[in-house]
Design a protein around this nucleic acid. Structure first.
Length: 466
RNA sequence: UCCUCUGUAGCUCAGCGGUAGAGCGGGUGGCUGUUAACCACUAGGUCGUUGGUUCGAAUCCAACCGGAGGAGCCA
């Protein structure tokens, strides 16, 4: 069925550009997948989508086409076709342009059991056909926005002279303190059972990274401002709509920067990304606003235009205690804020993104910088409505003696962090950074409620199909 | 790991002790510049699995398995 390309063929046009045409065109060529077909005796309407945008283009295939009876009337939803014809203004309502076909090549029809229908699928079912769901309106839209946001993230940092650093995915430091890790090993049989790590591929235990932060700090202490953007892995057995075992994280790190500068960057970044989405994904966002989250557009404009709130952890606890709200878990100074507390702050009290900073030292990791009050550390979490924590960051402890004391009080061995501690020996500098969960950002920007629906092939406990 | 909900046709669901249903999707035919098209006919199910209660179980009970939501942890 397929034809070999020849130099004089009409170049392929994207459906996106045809729909935006400002005049008719004698010869155009589209290639894509059929969304629906309706036929009569005299002709058939074929809607073709190529993923370049939400909408498809309507193709008119007259019954006198050579393969009309043999192929065209048998085309089912999901078939791949190539159409050559004229772009003409549409006689029917509903679309400005359509293609009057001169040739319809059926590259591959879809079997009768093609599972994607025109209506009524649950997200759970679509997850079970992750290889086909990008052909649905919703997932095509999600993954176009994902691509655009990845690009926007690089633009945000590159425009500010941040250097993109590729931190390792396989790591041998076994105590980064950010949750359970996946083991990487080539050990077999007895050696595996006995845990003979010295015989393993790297001569020691290795894992998939849970964060590139520590390695990122080393590069910030050389290139000043850096960022990472890559996959991270958590072997936590968590079953929620906001957690995945494999996800992408953005981690900027700035030398000569304190917590205030860190919060400034985090807030500017969220605003920039929201603004970029509003500007470059308008059609896609409108779709989400209609079918996924009615208040999406309003919320995104609000985030773009309004100042974010900032409160210290101490103030946040006071607000929560004075709220009169009935929480499942009590609000107590010295305890971590629960999900319900964070949601209350951002959704009900402030009704906008909130940065909470200066947390009690006891509930935060060893690398965070001790404040002058000696009770709190220079940490911050950026909370957004609908999701809760989207960014977590801190100013890092740059003083050698305090870092060593922190390692000890957290039960960690300085030997395991020798290179990290070294940074404090050779030209130490105040520095700060944060981690942004890429998928959580996408959930926020699209309104999609489950993290599994913004990752092409999600990995969660018990599920690694595809 | 804990708590709650859920599992009936390819998909979305109804049926909730008495012969297994609808819409969509598929097939066949018809009709129409249609657009989640429409009309008619038709094929399609070990009602998650195993065991129990009952004259009789999709329906009631138990265990197990799968799915979803929430909690913890975090991004």
């Amino acid at each position: 069925m397929s034809q070999s390309p020849s130099p004089d063929r009409t170049a392929r046009s994207l459906v996106k550009s045809l729909l935006a045409a400002d005049g008719p065109c004698d010869e155009v060529r589209v290639q894509g997948w059929v969304r629906t077909r309706r036929d009569s005796k005299a002709f058939s309407f074929i809607e073709v989508n190529d993923g370049s945008c939400l909408k498809g283009i309507q193709v008119i295939a007259d019954a006198d086409l050579a393969n009309y009876q043999s192929e065209i009337v048998h085309i089912r939803t999901g078939a791949s076709v190539e159409v050559v014809g004229a772009l003409v203004s549409s006689q029917g309502g509903g679309q400005a342009w359509e293609i009057q076909a001169r040739e319809v090549i059926v590259h591959g029809n879809a079997d009768e059991d093609f599972p994607l229908q025109k209506k009524g699928h649950t997200m759970e079912f679509l997850r079970s056909i992750a290889h086909l769901r990008p052909r649905s309106n919703l997932f095509g839209t999600v993954f176009r926005v994902r691509s655009r946001m990845a690009y926007a993230i690089h633009r945000f940092f590159q425009d500010r002279d941040f250097v993109y650093v590729h931190t390792p995915i396989i790591t041998a430091s076994d105590c980064e303190g950010a949750g359970e890790m996946f083991r990487v090993t080539t050990l077999k049989g007895e050696d595996f059972a006995a845990g003979n790590d010295e015989k393993d591929f790297f001569d020691k235990r290795a894992y998939l990274t849970v964060s590139g932060q520590l390695e990122g700090e080393t590069f910030a202490c050389a290139l000043s401002n850096i960022y990472t953007f890559g996959p991270t892995f958590r072997a936590e057995n968590s079953h929620t709509s906001r957690h995945a075992s494999e996800f992408w994280m953005i981690e900027p790190e700035m030398a000569f920067c304190d917590l205030g500068g860190d919060m400034d960057l985090a807030e500017a970044m969220i605003k920039f990304l929201v603004e970029d989405a509003l500007e470059h994904c308008a059609g896609d966002l409108e779709f989400f606003g209609r079918f996924v989250d009615k208040g999406l557009h309003e919320r995104l404009e609000f985030v773009r235009d309004r100042a974010f709130e900032r409160v210290s952890y101490t103030e946040a606890v006071e607000i929560l205690q004075a709220s009169g709200e009935k929480f499942e878990y009590p609000v107590e100074y010295g305890h971590n804020l629960q999900s319900e507390h964070e949601r209350y702050l951002t959704e009900k009290h402030f009704k906008c993104p909130v940065t909470v900073y200066n947390y009690p030292r006891e509930i935060k990791p060893f690398y965070m910088r001790l404040n002058d009050d000696e009770k709190t550390v220079a940490a911050m979490d950026l909370l957004v409505p609908g999701i809760g924590e989207i960014i977590g960051g801190s100013q890092r402890e740059e003083r050698l003696d305090l870092l060593q004391a922190n390692l000890e009080s957290h039960g960690l061995s300085e030997e395991d962090y020798w290179w990290y501690v070294d940074l404090r020996r050779y030209g130490t500098v105040p520095h700060a950074g944060f981690g942004l969960g890429f998928e959580r950002l996408l959930m926020f920007v699209t309104g999609v409620a489950n993290i599994r629906d913004v990752i092409p092939f999600p990995r969660v406990p018990g599920w690694a199909e595809f």
